[in-house]
Design a protein around this nucleic acid. Structure first.
Lengths: 212, 212
DNA sequence: TTGATTTTAGACCATTTGGTCTATAATTGG
DNA sequence: CCAATTATAGACCAAATGGTCTAAAATCAA
């Protein structure tokens, strides 16, 4: 047959042939959850097939490889969770409250009866980032986004602070956030995490971070 | 033969039979490094055999299972690294400097050319703690030790602070530490980590953590 | 209807997984 | 030297791994 006469101008959305029986985003959400909870090596193809209800053929046709599925999952996490957190940080309401809410996420996400997801970026940092450049770039981009948003709120909270001080505080808040997420995965109690958050918030109060 | 007449009173160190050809602690150190760097599922038995130079028979005779090897690795990490960090925290010198040194570990450990180990406790938090109660208990014990040591230094730095404030600050410092370790695994730049540390240290300075 | 195109189901594959078992080697106490 | 004991090497194993491939099914354009 002729090559590539196919549809240069028609610009259709639905190509010919049998249509997909699944929603790609829906499947990706389920797979993302698996990688998020169990890590890359901890999630087997079988896990993925069971959770998605698909068969190997469909998965490999649609996503190509396990690794690509992981990268796509990270991207989806960024779009779904990081961007939402960022929007909340730079959104409406008292800036101090917005920062507090941001640091509360790791604490509220903590379920008493085990099974804490934490933050996919933080988990991926430990799990894959140091051995997978593509994953690392995505994780860094996520941190970068949160870092910028933190700078924005903090500069609203402490309008008297110079940019340098705002930047350092934002980096500290990001560290606190990551630390809380990681420690929540380890089952640290809500009280302990709460204490950490309180001290971090207190550093933003009157007196604030007093350079030594 | 008779049961358990073996050596109730002799109390010998070396039992009869062929002696070990390897040093158990040495092997454990190598295995610990593998689990630390690659995680539980990311480390195969083959990895372990190659790194230790042992064969399956010896490994299983000496350690029983991969899982047990992981637990032993966590214990060894606690004895080797956590206890050392704790000792340094409550040791000699200016307390403010000791705290600074503690938070510098994640930054100095960062090698420019990838391959950052981070902290085994933090990695294990993301990797295994939420699906392995034994591992979780060890991780929590490690955090607990560091937390107590942090309280000790902080109470030396700010003798005017009430215990509650000291405790909250210690929890925050532990979060910052964990966050730095995790973000260093993701390849965050030394400058970024340094900024976070600076802000955290600043919170201990004059004015300190000013409750809102 | 027919031909082209695409997805699906699942058989199939080589490799690797964690783990066991046995024969042999190396030691000690007697 | 001999019996008992322990460690080593590596053959062996069933199950699981990530991945490929083919035949059938489902759709659309002509």
């Amino acid at each position: 047959m002729m090559v590539s006469r196919k549809r240069d101008l028609k610009n259709r959305l639905q190509s010919a042939g049998r249509p997909r029986e699944f929603d790609e985003s829906e499947v990706l959400d389920k797979v993302m959850t698996l990688f998020w909870q169990q890590g890359y090596e901890g999630t087997s193809l079988q896990n993925i097939l069971s959770a998605s209800g698909l068969t190997k053929g469909s998965v490999y046709k649609a996503f190509g490889s396990k690794h690509n599925l992981y990268i796509k999952s990270l991207e989806r996490y960024e779009a779904l969770h990081v961007d939402r957190a960022v929007a909340a940080l730079i959104g409406e309401g008292a800036p101090l409250m917005r920062l507090d809410d941001f640091l509360s996420v790791p604490i509220l996400g903590t379920k008493a009866a085990g099974g804490v997801d934490g933050c996919f970026l933080c988990n991926a940092s430990a799990d894959r980032a140091c051995m997978d450049a593509e994953a690392r770039a995505l994780v860094q981009r996520g941190y970068e986004k949160m870092s910028r948003a933190l700078e924005a709120v903090i500069s609203q909270i402490r309008m008297d602070w110079p940019p340098e001080k705002v930047n350092q505080s934002a980096q500290m808040m990001l560290s606190v956030y990551s630390g809380l997420q990681i420690m929540s995965r380890a089952g640290q109690s809500r009280e302990q995490l709460q204490s950490a958050k309180n001290a971090a918030m207190a550093a933003m109060g009157r007196g604030g971070i007093g350079f030594i």
